[in-house]
Nucleic acid binder design. Structure first.
Lengths: 210, 210
DNA sequence: GTCTATACGAGGATAGAC
DNA sequence: GTCTATCCTCGTATAGAC
């Protein structure tokens, strides 16, 4: 029964998101699961390892998506598609993203070894979005487009009463506007988007609580 | 001689930004200033008080700007102006904003009492930007426009070799694009922007270190 | 204003019994 | 797998001398 491990992860994620990583003690997490601190160490060798196992799916998803995306041709259609896929993945990991926003520092510290890879991936995607031989502003726009999607999601508290559907389409449009992509051509353009799967299965995250 | 107090604040800000608030110990800060932990307590009654005094200027600036902005008519020109002023203020407090991004959680925790006021201000500005009787998407766009400016600034590490000027104009344009504001009418429109001072004097922040 | 010394508590982590 | 007990380190904060 792997159940306890999962319970721990879920409890930790919830507490981390609500209170922050540093502030949350292992005792709190253990209490919530109904075990003791020591038992927790049976399942995870350290607090950092716990955090890693929580954030890992998002990192993996991002790296995978990044690799797929940069292989595509840099057409407006594909860019729009890439942003959509990115948005989709982020929404799938909503709780984790919130944590990342809250405690960017702590999370990055834990991923210090891996972080260069991630940064590299982000850079690649940014360059891909910016187009060939991008100017400074081109690169800024590319980065803002990416950030748009990430940040606005964590602003749930500032945007209640907004449907997920509105959020999804509006964010995509906003990112496209920033990139100055032409609006999607009304008709069918053959198949503008090829093989890339729309998004990984993606765990539901611990979403809730909003 | 208020010098020590300022030295402490500067050292603390730098360390907080680089390592994070929770992780940075008072001993480190004291060491850097060349005094002891105990002396530090003579100047600031607690670590939280220190953080407060660091972040306070930004909060104040934001509240002040918010109050001024929501009193303006909701024309495209004024919205553009408001975003510009907002951008200006954020750039003026660059280091603090970076800290806020890094440790949003910790900072918010410290400002828990005040935080409702701030949230309220943000909400007001968001509504002002969204226009009268805004739809869901209108409100999302307003929020994204605000976030655009804030976030992209912290992405300095992902956008080296970009001039501050490019950053400034591109971010403003991006925010306007998100809001679907028409491009600024080429000619002079009388005085589209009235009394509002372009931005508070604004401390230079401890910028550096990038 | 700044120091030395110290109280106090909390948190991460380990050892070893059940 | 889970517990009790314990270690060690570190951070906040205070007392009191210089």
């Amino acid at each position: 029964m792997e159940d306890t491990r999962d319970q721990i992860r879920a409890a930790a994620l919830e507490l981390f998101v609500r209170q922050g990583y540093e502030v949350t003690s292992l005792r709190e997490i253990a209490d919530r699961v109904g075990i003791t601190k020591a038992s927790l160490y049976y399942h995870y060798p350290s607090k950092q390892a716990l955090l890693t196992s929580i954030v890992d799916p998002l990192v993996k998803g991002w790296e995978r998506l990044g690799a797929e995306v940069v292989a595509l041709p840099q057409t407006p259609e594909h860019k729009r598609f890439a942003l959509d896929a990115y948005l989709d993945m982020m929404l799938g990991h909503r709780a984790i993203v919130t944590l990342l926003m809250r405690d960017a520092g702590a999370v990055l510290a834990v991923f210090a070894p891996t972080v260069d890879n991630v940064t590299a991936t982000v850079r690649q995607v940014q360059r891909w979005l910016a187009g060939p031989e991008p100017s400074g502003p081109d690169r800024i726009r590319a980065q803002v487009a990416l950030d748009t999607i990430g940040v606005a999601m964590s602003s749930g508290s500032l945007l209640p009463e907004v449907t997920e559907d509105d959020l999804r389409t509006t964010l995509l449009d906003a990112a496209c506007a920033v990139l100055r992509l032409p609006p999607p051509a009304g008709g069918a353009i053959g198949a503008p988007v090829p093989t890339v799967p729309s998004a990984p299965p993606v765990a539901p995250g611990v979403g809730g609580r909003r």
